[in-house]
Design a protein around this nucleic acid. Structure first.
Lengths: 241, 241
DNA sequence: AAACAAACAAGAGCAGTGCTCTTGCTTTTT
DNA sequence: AAAAAGCAAGAGCACTGCTCTTGTTTGTTT
C-alpha cells in the first residue's frame, strides 16, 4: 500500500552508468525523436504524448517516467531547437576569418534563415508565440542566449573596428540605461551607440525571417531569398561598412 | 428522419432584418466577446468552446449554430484583431498633417507597439506562430493587408518626396522582381529602391515589437519603450531623413 | 545466494476537449 | 392553419493530459 510517488524522474543516477541508465537514455532520445518528428508535421499545439506512445508502442503512462509532463517534453524540444540553430549559426561564423566581420555576419544571417525555412515548426517553437502559462525554465533561457550574443558580438566588434572613434553624445547615457541588461553580457563594457545599432539590426534580421516564415510575405515578397540576401548585405554595410 | 444538416450557418438571411436576425447577431457578438476575454487570459491554444458555452450558460452544441467550428471562431477573432490594430494605426496616422511623413510614421509605429503590448495574445494571434493546418481564409488576408500597406505607403511617399531623383541601378531590376507582389499593391508603380528600404524598415519594426512582446528582451533590453522610441526615430531618419 | 529497494510498464479511470446526431420546441414564412 | 426553417439541448464518440494502482523486472546490499 506504500504510495509510490513517481514524481519528477531524476535526471542522473549520480554514479552508476549501468545498463539501465543506458537504455533509459536511449528511450528518452527515442521519445524526443518521435516528438520532433511529430512537431515537424503538426506543430507544437498538436504534440500528443499518446500519439508518441502509440508510435513507440508503449503505454502512454509509461512516458511519464521519462518526462514528468508534456510541458517538460516541450522544454527539452525547445532546448534542442536552440542548440541546433546555435550550432548552425556558429558553424557559419567559423567558416570565415575572424577579422572579416561583414562576411561572418552575412554568413550567420543566411544560416539563420535557412534553418528557419527548413524547420518552420521548430523555428515557431522558439521564436513564435510564447505558450501562455509556460514559464521558460532557466535552461531554455541559457541556450537561447547563444544566438543573439553571437550575432551582436560580430556586429559590435565589426563596427568599433571599422569606425572612427565614436564621440559619446548626451543621448548615449539614456541608451546605455535602456540596454543595461546587454551591457554586462560579454563581460567588458560596450559603447551604447554601436550596441543600439546592432540590436536594431538583430531586430530587422529576426523580423525578415519571421515575416517570411510566418507567411506574411505571401503575395507580397515574391522572391524572399533574393530579397533577404539584398537586405542582409545592406544591413552589413550599414552596421559595419 | 430527415437529416437536418446544420452545416455551415448562413451569414446573412439575405432579406429579413427581422427580430430573429437581430438576436442572432447579438448572440454572435456575445460569443466573440467571451472568446476575446478568454483569449486575453489563456491565449489561442486555450480557447475552449465549452468554456465559452459555460460562461454564456448555454449548451456547447448550441454554439455550432453561430460558428461552424472552433477554427471559424478563431478566424473571426483574427479579423477582429487585424481590424482593431489597423484602426489604431490609421488613427495615429490621421493625427498628423499629410505632408509630415516622419511624424506620421513614428506615430504609427508607436501605436503598433502600444497595441501589441496591451493585447499580447491578440498580437500573437495575428503575428505569432501560424496555426499548423490552418489555411488562412481570404478574409483574414484582406484585413491583414491594411497595416503593412499603410506603413509602407507613408515610408515610400516620404522617401520619394525628400530624396533627390533616384537613378535606377542594375540591381534595381532584380529587386523589382523579388518585390513583384508589392509593386502592384497601391496601383501605381513604386521605385524598387525605396520600396526595399521601406520593407526592411517594416521588418525591423515588426522585429522590435515581436522580440519584446514574445519575451526575448527579458534581461537584455531593460527599458524596451525607451529603446523602441530611439530605434523608431533612427528608422524614420534613415528612411525619410 | 537471498533480500530488498528502486525502476519500470501497463491498465483503468478522471476530467477535459471538439464535434456530431437526434430530439423537441419556437419562430417565421407560406 | 400548415409547412418550413431556425434553434437549444442532451447524449455520445473519439481524443487529450495526467494520476493511481498493480505486478514485474532490474540492480544493489546484506
Amino acid at each position: 500500500m506504500a504510495k509510490q510517488t513517481p514524481k519528477a524522474p531524476e535526471k542522473e543516477p549520480k554514479k552508476a552508468p549501468g545498463v539501465r541508465a543506458r537504455v533509459r537514455a536511449e528511450l528518452t532520445a527515442e521519445i524526443k525523436a518521435a516528438a520532433t518528428r511529430q512537431l515537424a508535421v503538426d506543430g507544437a499545439a498538436g504534440l500528443s504524448l499518446r500519439a508518441i506512445a502509440r508510435e513507440l508502442e508503449m503505454a502512454s503512462s509509461a512516458i511519464y517516467r521519462y518526462f514528468a509532463s508534456r510541458e517538460e517534453l516541450l522544454t527539452a524540444l525547445i532546448i534542442d531547437a536552440y542548440t541546433s540553430l546555435g550550432d548552425a549559426v556558429e558553424a557559419a561564423d567559423a567558416a570565415h576569418p575572424r577579422e572579416e566581420f561583414a562576411p561572418r555576419f552575412v554568413s550567420m544571417a543566411k544560416a539563420l534563415r535557412s534553418w528557419a525555412i527548413d524547420k518552420p515548426n521548430e523555428y515557431a517553437l522558439i521564436y513564435g508565440s510564447p505558450i501562455p502559462g509556460y514559464a521558460a525554465p532557466q535552461d531554455t533561457v541559457d541556450s537561447a542566449t547563444r544566438i543573439p550574443v553571437a550575432l551582436l558580438t560580430v556586429m559590435v566588434e565589426g563596427r568599433v573596428k571599422n569606425s572612427t572613434a565614436s564621440r559619446t553624445s548626451s543621448e548615449d547615457d539614456s541608451l546605455a540605461q535602456a540596454l543595461d541588461g546587454l551591457m554586462t553580457f560579454t563581460g567588458r563594457t560596450i559603447p551604447p551607440g554601436p550596441l543600439a545599432i546592432a540590436v536594431e539590426a538583430w531586430a530587422e534580421l529576426f523580423g525578415l525571417v519571421s515575416l517570411e516564415s510566418f507567411g506574411h510575405f505571401e503575395n507580397a515578397v515574391t522572391d524572399p531569398e533574393a530579397f533577404f540576401d539584398h537586405a542582409v548585405r545592406t544591413l552589413a554595410d550599414r552596421v559595419m561598412g
